[in-house]
Design a protein around this nucleic acid. Structure first.
Lengths: 228, 228
DNA sequence: ACAAGACTGTAACATATGTTACAATTAGGG
DNA sequence: CCCTAATTGTAACATATGTTACAGTCTTGT
């Protein structure tokens, strides 16, 4: 394995709080396999059997639901050093709940389950990290479900923009995604998203120039969180 | 603790494959607390901090999302002997993702987290069971999200009825829920559900008399799974 | 600097689902 | 067995979102 891939692997949060030597004592990198995918490649389908723990060591991966037609709901973007579907590794149904697509050129390290079991048993820190990761994913997924079910497009926009303004520390945030990608994250169509953006502008709450947003009436935007 | 509550506790799948004596050696029932709730009571809100592992020892609990208005999406029904929100116990955000409501009179056993940690470390079987439970919940939640996002009401009905027919081993299944409860499970309004049921009847695919369903054209019902 | 492709806004229209209200039926408790 | 409350079907209407199509603008690679 290349040194940068090994570094990415050891930077995985599952190994937080462990020394590199401890990790290397407990599992042999030789027994892991590396897989490479090109940008845009389909890595795995929803329903595929998942029996090894995959950790991304290069690039990033989209985890999403796909309709038989083209409809998409993006669940999350997984980046280098992140484990994939940790919860599923030990689920009674070992099937991936989402489809995985390479958003860039990607390299994945595949760790056999017995090695994971050994780490869980022999390293308390790894156990805690693993449980934290699975718990965190469940929280994310539950929140996603709540948003999909209970919020209108306008509410999603308001919540997203307020969040970005917060993160970027300004009332003039720049969208980190194209509107097209944002539509996938929200699980709505692009024209519908565009329409609602326009309405918020028409109401004088926002102004936009491409990805550059300006919050003009923050209070009304916050009010839109609860009323649409 | 009453003997029947203790029995329910030990019947929890987390203890599968362990002897009663092993369990009792590893954690002291004395350090657990019992909580009682009446039918209909609110047990906990979404967002509440969750730091002990709760196991139902009597009755059943609805885990659901609730709108600020009255809209409800039921995620699952948790029955006696089932653990609650096992994933969340170790999540970095220790907040319940759903609201818990008592569907009957309920008794809950609350196990302090340190005791759970000890069990996880010292009993491999418990660790496996715990990971299986969290994995299973994630699978369920992911599937729920997919259904909410990608299927029409008619598709949900078709899928549900075919599933029930399968479980009950007959093409004339009886709905185990009122239509009102079913609407909550689907996250739709009751009149909308009723309207789509009527349409399926009008198309000659089903007939219904209260909760008694008859599948008249199984092939068309199966086709409705993919096309609405 | 240019061309090709990606991204964006917009409009007219279609459709699924929600809202509200009311009457008919059923089921359970006293 | 009856009475009340829960459940159900239905209709007219409102609304949110999807669909399709097109034209304008921005990006990016060469």
């Amino acid at each position: 394995m290349q040194e940068d891939h090994l570094k990415a692997l050891l930077a995985c949060h599952l190994f937080d709080g462990m020394q590199r030597r401890e990790v290397e004592n407990l599992f042999s990198v030789e027994q892991c396999h590396l897989f490479y995918y090109n940008h845009g490649a389909l890595i795995a389908f929803r329903g595929d059997v998942y029996t090894n723990l995959w950790i991304i060591v290069e690039g990033s991966i989209a985890a999403e639901f796909q309709d038989f037609s083209g409809k998409v709901l993006k669940v999350e973007t997984l980046k280098s050093s992140e484990p994939i579907a940790s919860s599923i590794l030990f689920a009674p149904e070992n099937n991936l709940p989402v489809t995985l697509t390479a958003e860039t050129d990607v390299a994945i390290c595949s760790i056999p389950r017995p090695q994971v079991v050994r780490l869980l048993q022999q390293e308390e820190q790894f156990l805690i990290n693993f449980l934290q990761d699975t718990g965190h994913r469940l929280s994310l997924l539950a929140e996603k479900l709540r948003l999909v079910q209970f919020s209108t497009i306008t509410e999603k926009i308001a919540s997203y923009i307020l969040d970005q303004a917060d993160k970027q520390g300004t009332d003039s945030p720049i969208l980190p995604l194209t509107k097209e990608a944002l539509a996938e994250v929200f699980g709505v169509t692009r024209p519908s998203l565009s329409r609602d953006f326009s309405q918020l502008c028409a109401r004088g709450i926002l102004s936009q120039a491409g990805r550059q947003i300006h919050i003009l009436k923050r209070k009304e935007l916050e009010a839109a969180l609860e009323k649409g």
